[in-house]
Amino acid sequence: MIIHHPLLGPRDAAEFVYLGDASLLNRPDPAAPSAAEDFYTYLHLRDNTAGEHRELWYHEQGDRSWLVLTRNTLTHEITRVELARDVAGQAS
């Protein structure tokens, strides 16, 4: 696979390390009364979508950016690549 890095252009996916669903960006509030349940859900339960999937990749053999890819898990087609810190920044 080839990932079009927003800063570096097309790079082989072998340069990257995969983490998982981009929902891992949304770490729950540890002070909330429901924190135990929230963290359990956050860390363990997945939509595991068959189709368009937002997911985290790390450019380990590169510039060490964490990226959010929008990739189809049925076809592997990548339609969007963003810097994770931009996505995380928008979310908060």
Partner: peptide, 18 residues
């Protein structure tokens, strides 16, 4: 060494970019 660094970058970029 490698996995901790990756983890710290995750924390830095993805959890607490501010």
């Amino acid at each position: 060494a490698v996995s901790v660094f990756r983890h710290l970058e995750f924390c830095r970029q993805c959890l607490w970019p501010e």
